[in-house]
Structure formats: structure tokens, C-alpha cells
Design a protein around this nucleic acid. Structure first.
Lengths: 248, 248
DNA sequence: TGTATTAGCCTGTATATACAACTAATGTAA
DNA sequence: TTACATTAGTTGTATATACAGGCTAATACA
């Protein structure tokens, strides 16, 4: 494969993305400057500039003239998509967030699950089931499976302190996601957990996320139809600037 | 205002975007080559290259080595977001598309509507209401308002031939969109139009789109919950690729 | 000691130049 | 006519160079 070698600026980009994905470079950490890349790899400054500039445009890095280039803080803003932590979403609306954990365990996947998550049926995976509240009103039932190898300490986390979404993002930025949104009539148990009236509809989001082309988590997120909306903005204007933060 | 003048590559980009937005440059039309831009504007080839390259990355242009640079065909793939024409979506699944038009008129907006669309209450706007079918099964009820100035010939179109979405995209690329997804219990009339069983949920998409910072259309799109899913892909890989995805 | 300057990083932009790869059209020889 | 070579125009990449402007820390100086 790989008959033609990639252009050098692209090689540089992938080298840096790999270091971020593998955790060798963590959020807010400093990334080599253009001149350092020149010395390290022998490219000219302009191609180092192109690599870093494009990584900046794609949201992997934050750059500041006079300061340097730093890995984006994926905890705050999972770069490619606007899947914010539900806790942040709630608090940013000025409401108070709380949660109840229903299950947090290591299980053997069912056949369907091992197929979806592309794993051997004998490998255990993590399962978390919890309800998220806004001002004591349930707004999301999270039912998520996480590949064991990606987050070995998943079972030890206190997810009343940090949401699973935020925790997973803190381990490594999620490069890719697929999300299917549908409207369903919830089962009785779901309806009760979300304190919904009978026959009220439910917004169901089924989401898979990948890191370095490997699927790491699969989850279903149920929202009461009358208490939750999914907002999407599309356009050139929404690139956000980070506030002044201290870098090490 | 405008204390600091923008960099030259950025000026070039905006110049070209303006020509596209205003219709001076239409989809598939040729855009000046790098060397032509050099002669026209006096910049160096590298900055002309940067302008065109970034416009390419952002989806405004299609470039081919040896051929040239061309305005993207927004009819097929509305660049910034994956809001495809529902007709294309259906046919790309191998099904047959059809539609029924319920209303196509020029009306005076209600108070709410004139506020949402940011227009004077005395300016008339277009209203289209139609049902879209996949293999003779209704999958979407479209209820859309269009600003008169943006599409003066809207009322004359035969929307059984071209969907409103495709028609509007053909006039000018839509730069920006906002979309709210929710799950609702449909009203009786909507339920009947979509041939849904009683108390079945409905996926409602409320969408606004802007051209050159001006809101041009506002619409509600109702989908039977059990016959429609909204798929979203987020990641670096899917540039240019139409998501002919199979749901399993 | 306190302040101002300077030196040295960093990114951001702009230019000039060069070569490669691709494509279409043209010219040329069999 | 056909097949092949040439040529000109296009994008894509890479380098070397230059200057501007932001920021920090060391230095010089009063």
C-alpha cells in the first residue's frame, strides 16, 4: 500500500495528531515551535508553518503569536463536533446539574453488542447507565458501553463528579463520531426513569465515537421530547477563541 | 471601523466568496487561476494559492491540478452542512421519490413569523407546504417560508420537479444554517398527512438558513419517528464524500 | 532597587523561485 | 488516419528569505 508517500506537511500533521491521540501530547501541552520542527525534521519553516496552521484551523491546536502552539483543550471543546458534556450544557444555561448512577460495571457483551463494537465476544467491556438532571428534572438517560482497553480505569471513576463524556475526552480527543437521531416511544422503564408522562415521545441519540480509527464507545442517549432539543449550527462563523489561559 | 486591514489572502478569499454569494460566479463556473489572480491583483502566486486552497478546504471551490478551480456545485452538496435534498436522499437509497404539494402561496406573515424572519409585517412572504414520499410512503412534511426578495420566482416553480431545498440552493449557496431537532407528538392533521398511527412520535427539525448574513428561509420538517433517522458524521475523513450509509 | 531597553523567541504574513504532476490541445511522423 | 511527442497552462508542493508584531526574560541603566 501507500505507494505514494504523503507530502511532508501532511506527514508532519499526522505525526502530531498521532502524538495527541496516543496521549504523548496532552491537552494544553506545548507542541514544538515552527523553528524547532525545522531543526528536528529538516523541513523549511514554511512547511512547518503550514502543518501547524492547518492543525490550528482543524481545531487540534491553539496558536498564539509570541507565545507558541498548544494542544487544544478537548475537555472544554471536543474539537470536531459540538458534543458538549451534558453537565457543561446544563450549567452554561445557569441551571444546576446533578446525576444518579444506575449501573457501573464490567460485563460480557451480548452478540449484538460485540458486533457493533467490533470486539471478541469474550472480551469484557464497561457499561454505565445513569440519569442526568437539570434542576432536579431528568433530561437524559445515558446508556453507554466503553471498550476496556481505551479506558482501563473507567470502573473506578466517580461519574457523579465528572461525566463519562468528559472523562473519555480527557483521555484522548475523539477524532470521529457518528450520531443517529430519531424519535421513539420510550419503553416503560425508560419513561419512568425520565419521569415522563405516558405516550410522550423521546429523542434518542445513538452515538459511536472513534479514536485513531478504533471504535471506543457506543451509547444511547434518551431525552424527554418536551424537555430537550438538539441544536446544530453550520457555518463559517463559529470558530471560538479560547480565553487567556495559563500554559505550562 | 476596520482599523486593521485584513491580510491580502483573506481579502482575496472574501472577494471570491462575495462573487459567489452575489451570483456573479455561479456553480461549476471557472474561477480565475492562481496566475491570473497574480496579474489581476499584484499578489504573489503563493498568496493567491493560499486563498484558493483555503476556499477549496472550506468547500467553496473544487480544484483540479491541470484543469483549474471551479465554484462548487452547491445543488448537489450544500457545502458547509450535509443538508441534502430529500429527493436525492431517497433516490440515493435506491427508492423512488414523489411528492404532493398542499399549498404554494404568497402570504402576509403572522406576528410571530415576521419576528422570526426579521421582516416587516406588511411584506409578503412565500409559503410552501408539501409532503415528500419514499416509495409512496410519506417521510417528510415540509412547511417552509421563504423571503420574497431572495427568490422572486418561487411561486412559479414546479416543486414536484425540483424540491424547494434544491431550488433555493441553486439560486445561491447557503452560507449558514441553524437547526433544532426535537421529538414531538404530532397534531392530528400532521399525523394524518404523514399517515402515522395515533400517538406515534414525530421527529421535528426546525431550520433557518442565511445567505450573506440575511435570513432567507425558515421551515419546519416533520418526520415519522419510525421511518426517519437523522444521521450525522463528524470527523476529518468525510470531506466530499456523500454519506450513503447503511443502517444495520 | 526600580525602570527602561534590548535581545530573543514565537506566530503571521508576503514574496520569489523552483520543480513535479496532471491535462488539454497541438504538432508531427508513421 | 493514427499514434506519439511536444507544449502550454493548471494545481501541488517545497524552499529560502524577509519583515511585522506579540510576548518574555535578561540586561543595562539611572
Amino acid at each position: 500500500m501507500q505507494e505514494k508517500q504523503l507530502p511532508r506537511y501532511q506527514q508532519l500533521k499526522e505525526l502530531i495528531i498521532d502524538k495527541i491521540s496516543s496521549g504523548a501530547l496532552k491537552p494544553l501541552e506545548r507542541v514544538p515551535s515552527e523553528n524547532q520542527l525545522v531543526k528536528m525534521t529538516g523541513v523549511s519553516r514554511m512547511t512547518a508553518n503550514r502543518a501547524l496552521r492547518e492543525l490550528n484551523n482543524e481545531g487540534y491546536l491553539d496558536r498564539k503569536a509570541g507565545i507558541g502552539s498548544f494542544v487544544s483543550d478537548f475537555k472544554v471543546n471536543s474539537h470536531l463536533f459540538e458534543i458538549k458534556s451534558i453537565a457543561d450544557e446544563v450549567t452554561s444555561r445557569g441551571s444546576t446539574y446533578s446525576s444518579v448512577i444506575l449501573e457501573q460495571s464490567l460485563i460480557l457483551p451480548t452478540n449484538d453488542l460485540s458486533r457493533i463494537m467490533q470486539i471478541n465476544g469474550t472480551s469484557q467491556i464497561f457499561h454505565i447507565k445513569m440519569v442526568h438532571f437539570e434542576d432536579s428534572i431528568p433530561i437524559q438517560l445515558e446508556d453507554r458501553y466503553v471498550k476496556r482497553g481505551f479506558a482501563p480505569d473507567f470502573i473506578k471513576q466517580d461519574f457523579s463528579e465528572i461525566t463519562p463524556s468528559a472523562y473519555l475526552s480527557s483521555i484522548s480527543p475523539l477524532n470521529e463520531a457518528e450520531q443517529v437521531v430519531s424519535a421513539i416511544t420510550p419503553s416503560l422503564s425508560i419513561s419512568e426513569l425520565l419521569q415522563m408522562k405516558k405516550d410522550k415521545p423521546c429523542l434518542l441519540i445513538t452515538r459511536k465515537t472513534w479514536v485513531r480509527k478504533v471504535l471506543v464507545t457506543y451509547g444511547k442517549f434518551y431525552h424527554p421530547g418536551d424537555r430537550y432539543e438538539l441544536l446544530g449550527n453550520y457555518g463559517p462563523i463559529m470558530r471560538k477563541k479560547l480565553s487567556n489561559k495559563k500554559h505550562d
